[in-house]
Design a protein around this nucleic acid. Structure first.
Length: 400
DNA sequence: TTCTGTTTACCACCGC
DNA sequence: GCGGTGGTAAACAGAA
């Protein structure tokens, strides 16, 4: 898995310098939720961040200025929730208050150097990390987006928004990566298309995770799948030809075992009912697909169970999700238990306040990784040095 | 017209 | 080298 962490050299050839320096691509994890979003300018100059030293004065917050104003709607509800942990208090986060995220307090990645005790040197960063590509694959990003949604399903556009809100990198070259997103959704069996309900017309279908794709990212590592998920129904001799996507059941040309790993059957018939989506009975949310009453409640619910190791994505539960109008903070009698202790787990991007007992002295930069050492340690009692620190350095530092 | 979704193709990287 | 995985580009069709 470690090797999966590529540096995206084509985007930024000198990543080594990124990590060689004290600057780090800090994940939202550092910021933990909670947060009170005071209006913040794109470049924070740190007022308010200092108490714990978790973040540095020059953290690059919300580079694009993602709807700061909207923050108040979804985020500020639990201002006190965060303060206790001391993580990122006073820092900004991307509100993601749009319907897709259900006011889930998802924070934008912070481009700054939380990883070092840098002085409040007013001098701007030498580099803006706005363009630093996250180490997550598109499949990972989609999976994370869907997972964090209340109804475990999102429209394409909502997925776009989630990604852009969380990763400023993706606010540029949208045509390129969005094409890849669409490609990933269509091509990968792990994503299933859920038709909109009649009472919720709109463009595009909802996308959800296949119920059986739960262990694609074991240990919560979202860097790369351990194995590709192939729908049994599709790959087997079942009712669908191999590779057929939910929306493409119709008699179509079998994939013919093309050499291309991307080859798949072709068909155009859209699913006629949600019950016929890859044999998965998923029902789209009636209202907003991911509206969540309480941002914290939702994130906590999703990402706070670190000591249990159930399959990360048990989407069959999604099939039983109540629509938002019946939604309550804990719709599942047995909430998901994500094994997200991995440094690159989503909960290191989006974590809840009660886990923010990070040692101010232990901070790392990087997506998810940065804090995870301490974060994981805090959560599991492990020595941070044995969690992700080595991992991080081993992967991200290019020694001479 | 734009967005969404599907498909094909090619390439790069990685592990075996 | 081969196969798997992932990223990108492009073409195309259909829906909103």
């Amino acid at each position: 898995m470690l090797s999966a962490v590529k540096m995206e050299g084509h985007e930024h050839p000198d990543w080594s310098s990124y990590y060689g320096e004290t600057e780090c691509y800090t994940a939202a994890a550092n910021m933990n939720s909670g947060l009170t979003m005071n209006s913040v300018s794109s470049y924070m100059s740190a007022p308010g961040i200092t108490s714990t030293g978790h973040m540095n004065a020059h953290s690059y917050m919300n580079p694009v200025g993602v709807s700061q104003s909207s923050m108040s709607t979804g985020v500020s509800q639990s201002p006190g929730a965060v303060q206790a942990g001391g993580g990122m208090t006073g820092l900004s986060m991307s509100p993601i208050s749009q319907p897709p995220y259900g006011n889930v307090p998802v924070m934008s990645p912070v481009y700054g150097q939380a990883c070092s005790i840098r002085s409040r040197d007013p001098k701007p960063y030498r580099r803006s990390y706005t363009h630093a590509k996250p180490p997550y694959s598109y499949i990972s990003l989609i999976t994370m987006a869907i997972q964090q949604s209340g109804c475990k399903m999102l429209t394409l556009n909502e997925i776009y928004q989630w990604i852009m809100d969380l990763f400023p990198f993706y606010r540029q070259n949208q045509q390129r990566w969005q094409n890849s997103i669409r490609h990933s959704l269509s091509f990968n069996d792990c994503f299933i298309k859920v038709p909109r309900s009649a009472d919720k017309p709109g463009k595009g279908s909802f996308w959800a995770l296949h119920p059986d794709s739960g262990n694609m990212f074991e240990n919560g590592c979202y860097l790369r799948r351990q194995k590709r998920f192939k729908s049994e129904k599709n790959s087997g001799s079942g009712d669908k030809e191999p590779g057929a996507k939910p929306g493409s059941e119709g008699g179509s040309v079998p994939s013919s075992g093309s050499d291309s790993p991307h080859s798949s059957s072709s068909s155009t018939s859209p699913p006629t009912s949600s019950a016929d989506v890859k044999g998965v009975d998923l029902k789209p949310c009636r209202a907003s697909p991911v509206r969540v009453p309480s941002p914290l409640a939702h994130t906590q619910h999703l990402f706070s169970h670190h000591h249990h190791h159930h399959h990360p994505l048990l989407l069959h539960e999604a099939a039983h999700l109540k629509p938002p109008d019946h939604y309550h903070p804990h719709p599942h009698p047995h909430p998901h238990h994500y094994s997200f202790n991995h440094p690159f787990s989503i909960n290191n991007l989006m974590s809840e306040p009660q886990h923010h007992k990070l040692d101010p002295g232990v901070q790392y930069g990087g997506y998810g990784c940065p804090v995870s050492g301490a974060l994981v340690a805090a959560k599991t009692g492990l020595d941070p040095m044995h969690t992700d620190t080595n991992y991080y350095h081993g992967v991200y530092t290019r020694g001479p």
